[in-house]
């Protein structure tokens, strides 16, 4: 019975939630722009600017979606982003020749951190919250004891990642779009994607069905940290250098979880998808842009933002009949 219902329900969710969020975000943006008469925000440049603000959070959130789908979570992404940004600018030191080695080192470190996260969770049976909270603290501690300010710099060629564009479309936005398409393909059309949903939906059942659940969890975490490393590279490019607080200041760990949940992916795992997450990121960017247009000062903005996170998640969870903690 439930087996027959499942696919239909998933398809229904995958269509409705992101679409609703996209329409809601667009309406909010339009209203804010018309209300404050900041019509330049509605021009192509204004909208491209809005999209550019989704890149950093969007990239982390894609990775976070993967781990949350398999009923895990990653709280270390904020520190991983800082590590990526600092490593990149420290290795490059403004030299274009060091760009490729720096990117490779960052991605290798990120993959290593993710694999360790996954192994601690899958093999040592440490709760993912604690495992990634701990690894985040470890990374942040090592990083902050080695660096206490902007370290090195990024050559102009690397700044093109954040500032370059093809026609009106920035590379970074295009890159996020391609990443989202890639992850969407991974989830819908590969064996890994199917296994991810299976492990998140019912880990014991997945194991009995012959899926190597440990391996799926390690792979998901490796991918998630890789996405965090990419975000670090992007931030280093945008800020022209990396500092050990770039990840923490962006609250990327908690905000990425919030947008994934707002996008309709269940924290319990097994249900959700990429497009909801992207729509959630867009909603956050629109809310920020609207606040700016309305001229809300920084601190009240923070208060309202907190309330919006709770309200947005409540909209979905209210349908939930079971208990949450």
């Amino acid at each position: 019975m439930t087996l027959a219902l499942q696919p239909a329900r998933r398809r229904h969710r995958a269509f409705s939630v992101p679409l609703l969020l996209f329409i809601g975000s667009a309406a909010l943006y339009l209203c804010a722009a018309l209300w404050t008469q900041s019509l330049n925000q509605l021009s192509a440049e204004g909208i491209v600017g809005l999209l550019q603000r989704t890149v950093a959070l969007g990239t982390v959130a894609l990775g976070q979606t993967l781990v949350i789908l398999c009923a895990s979570i990653d709280l270390s992404v904020g520190s991983m982003i800082s590590v990526g940004a600092v490593l990149a600018s420290f290795i490059m030191r403004g030299a274009p020749a060091m760009m490729v080695p720096a990117v490779l080192v960052v991605l290798l470190v990120a993959a290593g951190v993710g694999a360790i996260n996954g192994l601690v969770i899958a093999k040592l049976k440490v709760s993912p919250l604690i495992a990634t909270l701990g690894s985040g603290l470890i990374l942040q501690g090592v990083l902050s004891s080695g660096f206490n300010n902007f370290a090195g710099s990024v050559p102009p060629a690397f700044q093109a990642v954040a500032y370059g564009a093809i026609g009106p479309l920035p590379w970074s936005v295009l890159g996020l779009g391609l990443l989202a398409l890639g992850v969407s393909w991974l989830l819908r059309s590969t064996r890994f994607g199917a296994h991810l949903y299976a492990v998140g939906g019912n880990a014991a059942g997945a194991r009995l069905a012959g899926i190597r659940t440990d391996r799926v969890i390690v792979q998901a975490h490796t991918l998630c940290s890789l996405f965090a490393g990419l975000t670090g590279l992007y931030l280093a490019s945008r800020l022209r250098s990396g500092a050990p607080w770039v990840g923490r200041d962006g609250v990327y760990d908690l905000e990425s979880i919030a947008v994934v949940v707002i996008g309709g992916t269940m924290l319990a795992g097994g249900r959700g998808g990429v497009w909801g997450t992207i729509a959630g990121v867009l909603l956050f960017a629109v809310i920020d842009a609207s606040f700016n247009m309305l001229g809300v000062p920084a601190f009240p903005k923070q208060v309202i933002r907190g309330a919006i996170v709770i309200a947005a998640v409540a909209v979905y969870s209210l349908r939930n009949k079971g208990h949450v903690a």
Binding site: V251, V303, I304, G306, A307, A314, V324
Partner: peptide, 19 residues
Amino acid sequence: LKVPSIIATLGTLLSVNGV
């Protein structure tokens, strides 16, 4: 409201800090 506590208290963290 059935908001998972990690999200709910994250929201109040942001709001209380703002206040």
